[in-house]
């Protein structure tokens, strides 16, 4: 066990962690942040996506060691059930979730795209989101929701 300090969603947490523990387990088991999901454990599905220094990573493959000076953001930072964020509201409005398992990863990845490029076109959205899979097949609605936010912020 090693003592590791993680900066998650704006607050610092000092945790005793196995040195080989991927970030996902620390988030879910130690911090009760259950938004990010364990999907494949292989970095192939994207359900575990979180942001490290504003870049999307697969938290199931990212070791906790080495994250001490970085800022980590999870889907919980985007809003709450009562007050969903702009992107979350668009996912609700477009009914983008079927079973919902992939959605946390989708939201976080889309968020990082919109922070980098507030008005991406559909091709850019499709390419950027290609690493995240939805087994229910709601990709088209997910893209609709992202496009909605990308378009709605025009002229603001």
């Amino acid at each position: 066990m090693t003592s590791t300090t993680l900066n998650v969603n704006g607050s610092l947490h000092e945790l005793e962690l196995d040195p080989d523990m991927p970030l996902l387990y620390a988030l879910r088991n130690h911090l009760n942040l259950n938004g990010a999901k364990y999907g494949c454990g292989l970095g192939q599905c994207g359900a575990c996506t979180v942001l490290i220094d504003n870049k999307p990573v697969f938290s199931c493959l990212t070791p906790c060691s080495g994250l001490e000076s970085k800022t980590i953001r999870t889907v919980e930072s985007l809003g709450t059930a009562d007050r969903p964020g702009k992107l979350q509201q668009a996912f609700i409005d477009k009914q983008a979730a079927q079973c919902g398992y992939c959605i946390a990863g989708m939201l976080v990845r889309a968020q990082s795209l919109l922070e980098r490029d507030p008005h991406p076109d559909e091709t850019t959205i499709r390419e950027y989101m290609a690493t995240n899979l939805c087994r229910c097949g709601t990709h088209l609605r997910i893209i609709e929701a992202i496009k909605h936010v990308a378009g709605a912020s025009h002229g603001q």
């Binding site: 192939q44 990573v57 493959l61 990212t62 080495g66």
Partner: peptide, 22 residues
Amino acid sequence: PPAPGAPGPTMPAFANSLNNQQ
């Protein structure tokens, strides 16, 4: 990276997951 429309092995990029020391 996956090649769209073609089966085959893929591997995720670790540039944002592993620092130089790791």
